[in-house]
Nucleic acid binder design. Sequence first.
RNA 1: UGUCCGAUGGUGUAAUUGGCAACACAUCUGAUUUUGGUUCAGAAGAGUCCAGGUUCGAGCCCUGGUCGGACAACCA
Length: 575
Amino acid sequence: MTAEKKETPARPAGGEEKKSLNFIESFIEEDLKNNKNNGVVMTRFPPEPNGYLHIGHAKSICLNFSLAQRYNGKTNLRFDDTNPEKEEVEYVESIMEDINWLGFQWEGEARFTSDYFDQLYEWALKLVNTGFAYVDDQNSEDIAKQKGTPTQAGTESPFRNRSIEENLDLFTRMKNGEFKNGERVLRAKIDMSSPNMHMRDPIIYRILHKEHHRSGNKWCIYPMYDFAHGQSDYIESITHSVCTLEFEVHRPLYDWILDHLYVEGTIRPRQIEFARLNLSYTIMSKRKLLELVQKNLVSGWDDPRMPTITGLRRRGFTPASIRKFADTIGVAKRDNVIDVALLEHSLRDDLNRTAPRVMAVLNPLKVVITNYPEDKEEWLKIENNPEDEAMGTREMPFSHEIYIEQDDFMEDAPKKFFRLAPDKEVRLKAAYIIKCEEVIKDSDGNITELRCTYDPDSKSGSGTEASKRKVKGTLHWVSAKHAVDAKVRLYDRLFSDEDPAGHKDKDFKELINPDSLKTLTNCKVEPSLKDAEPESKYQFQRLGYFCTDRRESKPGNLVFNRTVPLKDSWSKKNK
RNA sequence: UGUCCGAUGGUGUAAUUGGCAACACAUCUGAUUUUGGUUCAGAAGAGUCCAGGUUCGAGCCCUGGUCGGACAACCA
């Protein structure tokens, strides 16, 4: 059972542990075994540039690129831009940026379906010439009426049996701009009684007098998705055209069209469908996401609460964590809802290893160390990441007055409260053990200050008996006089419902989490953060992972976004 | 009422192609810890939608159901 077989099929190069194949990989290996495409694997990611990419697209991107990588193939980026009414260059640019940020590089230049318009037109002509396409003069309502229903056959168009010559003439005139929008369409002649609605003489070209973001005014007829996608795959020699499940019913049409154009000896693409990603506590619909943006329910496409790639980036997600996530969720054909906790897990897993630890106090409470000289300060050495010694150490100032977290003090503390309370001791991380001697309050009874004493012999790492004493709690802190001010945004999930789009009786907007954003303006961070560049990632010790906002944070005017809190079994226990 | 697709712990994904269901997340213990983090050890949780059939043996094959999803845009 240990002996390796001599001939391993075209498996991934590189010593990757054997993992079971997903169904797409099985298809690919089967094709490879049958020497179907001369051993070549070519995939593509084909977004329509009509919006921003989200985490669901990330799944598809990771899938397409990793499939190609695994079988020594390549991946194209192709913009499916056949509908000039919805598409914009702004989106083209954001999509390219997002893919690169995720860590992928497509083969050669980005491609555009619009670059193939000439070829597509030639193919349409070919269908017309062979009697497999005809021009229909009817308007969309009439065509829709004749389409039938899923359970009832359609009826044939009165224009279905025009002569080839007439079709040719009409189609040419469509192209030449002799007709207005909607006056004519080109249809494939297939089968009006097919149980598959997409085979009932689908429209393959329509008239649209509209400037295209790339081809300008060259065309006033545009191919429909079904008459563009498969051929584009074919032009690019895509071997495996991976798309989501809703296109499954399009596959017969995809194949029908290819049947009529295919040239022997060329690579023939194969469409394979997988289940799109659903994530709990969020929505994935472009339309709904757009609504959030347009109604100012979020600050934009890159609002850190958005499931867009640019939003996740601004929130502080790492590309590696998203790739890991995509790999972990796998790919199959059944509908699924992934728990956001899994996304957060791969994030924390990555950040735990890579994010330097720093101290930041979000809700400061002043602590005066009464027996520490007022004019004294000392710089204490502290590790940057206990998970990775190579990340080194830094120094942090300690002085007479410090800030601790308000949550880290309780006047009447339960026995399990390991933090500061009257007459109790805690360790200040990397510093000293202090004891709370006195609680100062204002006239309203609010705690304004704590007076503590410190044990001078308890300095961390000093090796003294006192330094080795076990105290139950360790707090983060910041020296008051050295602290740097910062604004911190505490983000939480955008929706308080697991499936915001899944309620018939409730609009998803009603389910927005009212506490999804809390802004704190009085935060105190350690001085080493003073010059933090935008998009820097840190672990605020004991609090969570935070990053400097890539748009608004500047050295001297720090704005942090909470990416994700640390796991917290304490507050969980107290719920 | 049609066609296509799917159904495995709370959530995902596996199961050497027929050999008594594994991994991850989530949950819960305990240990370690100068982060109530991490790490480590462990627990609980499905008998694979249902009913038949084939077989020595079925999550995998067959038959018939049930449930869920997709499809009737001159969108992609």
